[in-house]
Amino acid sequence: MTRQIASTIPVLASLDIDASIAFYGERLGFATAARYDDYAIVRRDGCEIHFWLCSERRIAENTSCYVRVADAQKLYEEFSRNGLQMQPPVIQPWGMKECHVIDPHGNLLKFGEDLPGRSSPAA
């Protein structure tokens, strides 16, 4: 069977495109791939996130994205060095070591590392 779906890309609400680009670049290490008046794309390590300009904070505050990572602890340490105040990673019952970030607009980003030998969701 031929694989039909190659990847998923979250599209998050942004109250200010420039502020989103700055936060994701300075705090999370993403590079700007594209910038338009009401849309932006950032990338890091094969991960791509899009932003659309939105005037309603409640939309962003009810949005989240899950990002699988190789090492949640190292990412936590990097983000902390970049000035983020966040809790350290926690091992979840579903076999993932996770930490999270809430961006300036309210979007929740969970970063999860699959732990070998633990029950985890199918990849």
Rank of each mutant, 00 (worst) to 15 (best):
S64I: 09
G46Q: 03
E78W: 06
D37K: 03
S20D: 08
R35V: 02
L75T: 03
N82D: 12
H50L: 01
L15T: 05
R68T: 14
D45S: 08
G25P: 04
E78C: 12
E61V: 06
A19Q: 07
T8D: 08
Y39I: 01
H50D: 09
L12Q: 03
V11G: 13
A34V: 12
C65A: 15
C47R: 12
Y76K: 01
T32H: 09
D71N: 12
E61R: 09
A40G: 06
V67S: 05
A72M: 05
P89N: 08
N82L: 10
E77S: 06
L15H: 07
I49A: 00
I9M: 14
M86L: 12
R43C: 10
E26H: 08
K74V: 13
A72R: 10
A34H: 14
S14P: 05
R35M: 02
G46H: 05
D18Q: 14
L84S: 07
H50I: 04
A19H: 02
A60L: 05
F23T: 07
L75K: 01
A60H: 01
L15M: 10
A33P: 12
R44S: 05
R58K: 13
N82I: 07
I21V: 11
L75P: 00
F51S: 04
V69T: 08
A31L: 14
D45K: 01
R57G: 04
G29H: 06
F23G: 04
G29I: 06
G29R: 06
P88F: 04
A72K: 11
Q4I: 13
S7I: 00
S20A: 13
K74A: 15
I5Y: 09
R44H: 04
S55W: 06
V90R: 12
S64L: 13
Y36R: 14
R81V: 13
R27I: 03
E56D: 15
